[in-house]
Design a protein around this nucleic acid. Structure first.
Lengths: 229, 229
DNA sequence: ACCGTTTGTAACATGCTTGTAATATATTTC
DNA sequence: GAAATATATTACAAGCATGTTACAAACGGT
């Protein structure tokens, strides 16, 4: 679930400072010193955002950014440029390249983190998610609300995500492992039995209006959300 | 939230002069030399106003303005044309394009800033003028006043903007980060937890008439303004 | 320059959520 | 029918998200 940030910066002092700040802010970070290494990381790890130093040995940050924005695989990854003071005048050129934001050195860790979050927020599709309905059970992703026959259903965050996933993928069995991936995130280390507990909590919240029957156990396989009994 | 002005001007001397004047007047500015670069900046930064030179290399200012007023994404951005003396006769044509004002070279920085402010003032109140009411809670953007059941509610500026935003976007969850973007502005970098404090202040001001229940916490997601409990 | 107000942050308090383990119940297998 | 296996249920403590308060810096008007 944690976003991965790739930092491309040749000065090791800045690299360490930034890495430390990002890790503390809950990001997963990878740091490289030049474009070549960075390219390898991008292909292997598919980072969610790239922090790119303006001046780099070998291929410059500007050229590298241009190349990234041309390649199909990396075009959509947001880029934040790290520039020194005197380089500010070239901002236009950067924006023309499709760079998403700039941070001018020296910068505070807080500002950097805030800008990263802002860019990630803007990059994320502000989904026009429509409410889902099944047999009088409504789930509205926008208002983050669930109602059964008009009356509100109280759900914890995990149960909400789980129900949301189930309702958008009905009539299909998911193993506990798959549910951990889909509902919790790709890189979590949790007991598979824990899924049972959350299934229980979800059913408990739905039982008042009889909607718990929609959450079905498939013995030996996992769970399924289905209208048919 | 400082307004961002995009300047499109091919003469670098004028570009620097105007940039300096605008920065000193508290605007955030981006300058480009031609229409192609400007287009990129518009898409990235969504400036609040565009200063457009009448004569430009490549696509002329007139043609560029026409295109901007045709595109959905840029139609609403006000445009001020920079013209030399002899070109005044064409003003009529320009106003037909939907250009908002003209400034004739040579102009004083003071005059330019004044015109920009005037245009922004005229453009800003776009439909967000009417009072909003929810369950006896009134917010009037014009008089900048809030009343609950007839009696006035004391709010700080930030709380007012926040309530205004909430009341015009009800039944929808906003994360702390989104609220920072929407209520504080795009270029401000503040701790997300600060949102909590302002939520608290807003609730405190509304509690006297029981309207604090409209500001709802959605655990793990953010806050929501909603009539329903 | 002064004073009251507003604002952002830190620190502390509180309540909910969550993952796990332990126990109970159901289903299959032999 | 007993053992083996799979799922259901419950209880709980540790962690985490949010609520709340206090305070100092910044701001705005005079």
């Amino acid at each position: 679930m944690a976003d991965t940030i790739l930092l491309v910066e040749d000065e090791s002092a800045i690299r360490e400072m930034v890495t430390f700040a990002l890790e503390r802010a809950g990001f997963s970070t990878v740091a490289t010193a030049d474009a070549a290494q960075a390219q390898a990381v991008i292909e292997r790890k598919a980072p969610n955002l790239i922090l790119l130093d303006w001046m780099l040995p070998g291929l410059s940050g500007v050229d590298f950014a241009r190349r990234l924005k041309k390649e199909e695989g990396s075009r959509k990854i947001p880029i934040i440029m790290l520039t020194a003071r005197g380089e500010e005048m070239d901002k236009v050129r950067g924006f023309e390249l499709g760079v998403d934001d700039y941070v001018t050195k020296p910068f505070s860790p807080r500002e950097l983190v805030a800008r990263i979050k802002a860019v990630l927020r803007r990059a994320a599709p502000e989904g026009e998610e429509k409410p889902i309905e099944v047999e009088g059970l409504w789930l509205d992703p926008v208002s983050h609300r669930v109602t059964a026959g008009g009356t509100p259903v109280e759900l914890g965050p995990t149960e909400f995500r789980m129900l949301h996933f189930f309702m958008s993928h009905p009539e299909r069995v998911y193993s506990r492992g798959q549910l951990l991936d889909k509902v919790w995130g790709n890189d979590v280390y949790i007991e598979e039995r824990t899924v049972d507990v959350h299934i229980r909590r979800l059913r408990k919240a739905l039982v008042a209006h009889g909607h718990d029957r929609l959450i079905q156990t498939v013995r030996g396989a996992g769970y399924r959300f289905s209208v048919r009994s």
